[in-house]
Each structure stands twice: as structure tokens, then as C-alpha cells.
């Protein structure tokens, strides 16, 4: 009787473990999905700036924002993440990757070796990207200068350094679709720029205890994970600037009273300054259309 119970328990445990493994294993895109796509490097440059790659994958002091050495340190409750080299260097960067490898990273958070990336790499947002934008960005990245600087490992402690655990995180949080308003071409574009490429919510939306975005308080501001102060909320009740004020800030860093952006936003502005005026206005229109949140 006891023997049967133990056997039964072992069986249940095995089934749970197997189900857990199936549910949480790193996902990959169907290779055919990207086989027919041809990337356009010129279009990819626009994706690069809107995606903010340079903010983490260049040194903050770098004057060349296309030398993607990595090195930016993201301080968080879970430890310090260090952005890796994603230059086209075949050994230290991602020069040896295929487009499908790149798509797996951007859309599924999966490494070419089939492991999970930590969500400090904001694939939770990038997974909403259009396939063509992924292909274009990949084509553009090939044109950038290589860097032979080795990537630096993350500084995480148990249990947050377990990549397998990220699989569970993905099951919990990776089913998020588009959240904000997208009626009409301009809002739809603004929403895509903010929620998919710009990954603004990664900082401007609060997170729950396990680090998932709280979509009920979308863009309502959050504690600054890397120190004192708060990341400001951007809903219309919180950010009272006009649409034109916001677009001008994203272009120049100047607030309506001509203070100038600091901290992480100074770096974001350096990226967004390269967007078209229409795209910056679309971002501003989206922010002005956000529902109230606290």
C-alpha cells in the first residue's frame, strides 16, 4: 500500500516536472517564418533608434552610439544585469548569428544555444515587433562596426541567477498584448513605438513582486530600481504637457520651461532625436490618449 502510494507520488511528480519543463522551456520561432524575409538596413536604422538599443549596448560615455560594446549596468532588486556586446564581432558580439537566431532573441527571449535570456533584455516588449522590423534591424546591425570587447557576466545571486526559472516568469508574463489606445493610424503608430520598440513601459509601469509589469497601472510611474527617486508617470493627469511639448522634449531634451532631461531619459532623447517628427508626435499623441491610472 505504502509502496503504491510512493510510486503514485513519484509518477505525479514526474508528470508535473515534465509538464513544467514543456511549459517553461525556451521557445523558438518557426525557421520558415523568417526564411523569406529580406532585411532593409536603411529601414533598420529607424528601428534601431526607436528601439533604444544604444542606451544599454553602448557605454554611457560613448560618442559613437553605434559601437555596440555593451557594458551598461542595470541595477535591480534581483542583482545587476550587464548588457552584452551585440556588435557584429563574430567572437564577442553576435556576428555569427543567423536572422532566425536574432528573431529568437528579440521575440522569444531565447539564446542561440536554446537558453532563456533574463528579461532585463526587454523582449517582453520587443516580442510585439513586426517580423519585417526584426529583419530590417538585423540587416542594419550587420553594417555597424565590430567591437572585440568581451561581454561581462551579470552579477546575480541565487535564485535569480537560474535561467531555468525565467521559463516560469515567461509563462506568467509573456502573454501580454498591446495595452494602450490605438484607434486610428497615428495612435496605432504611437502605441507600436511606445509599447513594442521604445519599451517605455519597462521603466514607466510599476512591477509586481515577481517583476512582471502591472498592466492595470500602465505607464503610471514606478520606483526607480537603480536608486532613489521615481520614474515619473506619463498618463495625462500626471504629465500635463501639451502634445507639442512632449514631442519637442523627445527631440531636444528640453522641458517646457527649458530645463533639460537628465538620467536615463537623456540617453533616450539621444535615440529619439533620430526619429521622424511624425513618429515623435505619434508617441506624444499616444501618451495624451492614455487612460487615467494611479
Amino acid at each position: 500500500m505504502i509502496g503504491r502510494l510512493v510510486k503514485g507520488l513519484i509518477l505525479v511528480a514526474l508528470v508535473v516536472a515534465a509538464a513544467g519543463w514543456v511549459l517553461t522551456r525556451p521557445a523558438t520561432v518557426e525557421p520558415e517564418r523568417f526564411a523569406t524575409l529580406t532585411g532593409d538596413a536603411a529601414a533598420g536604422e529607424a528601428v534601431f533608434w526607436a528601439g533604444g538599443c544604444a542606451s544599454c549596448h553602448t557605454e554611457s560615455s560613448a560618442t559613437d552610439r553605434t559601437l555596440l560594446t555593451g557594458g551598461y549596468r542595470i541595477e535591480s532588486d534581483f542583482g545587476t544585469f550587464v548588457a552584452p556586446n551585440i556588435s557584429p564581432d563574430p567572437e564577442h558580439g553576435i556576428g555569427g548569428w543567423s536572422l532566425t537566431d536574432f528573431a529568437n532573441a528579440m521575440l522569444e527571449g531565447t539564446t542561440p544555444e536554446g537558453a532563456h535570456y533574463f528579461p532585463s533584455f526587454p523582449y517582453g516588449s520587443y516580442r510585439l515587433m513586426a517580423d519585417q522590423d526584426v529583419a530590417d534591424l538585423w540587416a542594419y546591425l550587420q553594417t555597424l562596426p565590430p567591437s572585440d570587447r568581451p561581454s561581462v557576466p551579470h552579477e546575480l545571486s541565487l535564485p535569480f541567477n537560474l535561467r531555468m526559472a525565467v521559463g516560469g516568469w515567461k509563462v506568467l508574463y509573456l502573454d501580454r498584448g498591446l495595452v494602450g489606445p490605438g484607434d486610428g493610424a497615428q495612435l496605432e503608430r504611437g502605441r507600436y513605438l511606445v509599447e513594442a520598440l521604445g519599451h517605455c513601459a519597462e521603466c514607466h509601469t510599476p512591477r509586481d513582486a515577481f517583476g512582471g509589469l502591472d498592466t492595470t497601472r500602465w505607464m503610471a510611474g514606478a520606483p526607480n530600481p537603480s536608486g532613489r527617486g521615481r520614474i515619473p508617470g506619463l498618463t495625462p493627469a500626471q504629465l500635463t504637457w501639451s502634445e507639442g511639448d512632449i514631442a519637442y522634449y523627445l527631440e531636444t531634451g528640453f522641458t517646457p520651461d527649458f530645463d533639460s532631461a537628465g538620467g536615463g531619459m537623456a540617453s533616450v532623447v539621444k535615440n529619439l532625436a533620430n526619429l521622424t517628427p511624425e513618429d515623435r508626435t505619434a508617441i506624444a499623441a499616444y501618451l495624451k490618449a492614455l487612460p487615467a491610472a494611479e
Partner: peptide, 21 residues
């Protein structure tokens, strides 16, 4: 011509100023 001025404001604030709450 204002752009390059703003870029230097941003460069200094990014490095040396605690962002606004």
C-alpha cells in the same frame, strides 16, 4: 543650432544630475 546646445545640457545632466522625481 539649438540642438547641439541641448545635447550638451543633456550630456551633463545625464552624467551628474539626479533625475527629477
Amino acid at each position: 543650432a539649438l540642438g547641439p546646445v541641448g545635447a550638451q545640457c543633456g550630456a551633463c545632466h545625464e552624467a551628474f544630475q539626479q533625475p527629477n522625481n
